[in-house]
C-alpha cells in the first residue's frame, strides 16, 4: 500500500503544527507534507510525482505571501494529473469573491473556516480521502479502518460483483 499524501499549505508555523497534530490519527495510511507557500507546495508536488506518490488531498490556506491559495487551487484544477485530488480551503480570510472563484473555477470540495475544531477537520479529511480512494485507488482495502469503512466496503462488494 502506498501512503496517501496530504499537502498542507499554510504560512504560519504554529498553525501548521496544529494541523499536523490534528491529522496524526491518519498516520498509518497518510503522509502529511507541509509547505509555507505556494512555490514550495509546487516543489512538494513535483517530488511526490517523481516518487509516484498519490496526492489525495490539498489543504490550503488562502492569504499567503506570493500566490494566493485560491489561485493555487485553480491552477491545480486545470492540471489533469490532479483531477482526482480533493481540494479544501482552510482559511479565515477568503472573502466572498475569492470563495466563489474557488467553488466555480477550482471545483473546491470543501471550505473550513478558521478557527477549526479537530473533529470537524478530521471528519472532512476522512470524507474527502474516502472520495479520493473511491475515484483513484484500485484496492481500497487498506483504507477501510481509518476512512469511511462502510462506503469502501460497499464499493468493494459492487466492483467485486462486476468482476
Amino acid at each position: 500500500m502506498k501512503k496517501l499524501v496530504i499537502l498542507c499549505v499554510e504560512d504560519e508555523g504554529e498553525v501548521r503544527e496544529a494541523i499536523l497534530r490534528d491529522l496524526a490519527l491518519f498516520k498509518p495510511i497518510v503522509r502529511v507534507e507541509t509547505a509555507d507557500q505556494v512555490d514550495e507546495a509546487k516543489e512538494v508536488l513535483a517530488e511526490c510525482a517523481a516518487d509516484r506518490e498519490p496526492v489525495g488531498l490539498v489543504l490550503c490556506d488562502h492569504l499567503m505571501p506570493g500566490t494566493s491559495g485560491v489561485d493555487f487551487l485553480i491552477e491545480l484544477q486545470q492540471n489533469a494529473a490532479y483531477a482526482a485530488t480533493r481540494k479544501v480551503l482552510i482559511t479565515g480570510q477568503a472573502g466572498l469573491e475569492d470563495t466563489v472563484r474557488a467553488v466555480n473555477e477550482a471545483r473546491l470540495h470543501h471550505y473550513i473556516a478558521k478557527p477549526w475544531q479537530a473533529a470537524d477537520l478530521q471528519g472532512v479529511v476522512r470524507d474527502q480521502l474516502t472520495e479520493y480512494v473511491l475515484a483513484a485507488v484500485d484496492d481500497p482495502t487498506p483504507y477501510i479502518g481509518l476512512l469511511d469503512g462502510p462506503r469502501l466496503l460497499q464499493h468493494i462488494a459492487a466492483t467485486g460483483r462486476d468482476r
Binding site: G13, R16, E33, T34, A35, D36, E40, E43, V44
Partner: peptide, 9 residues
C-alpha cells in the same frame, strides 16, 4: 529555532 517547512523536509 523552529525550522521552515522546507528545512524540515
Amino acid at each position: 529555532k523552529p525550522l521552515s517547512s522546507r528545512e524540515q523536509r
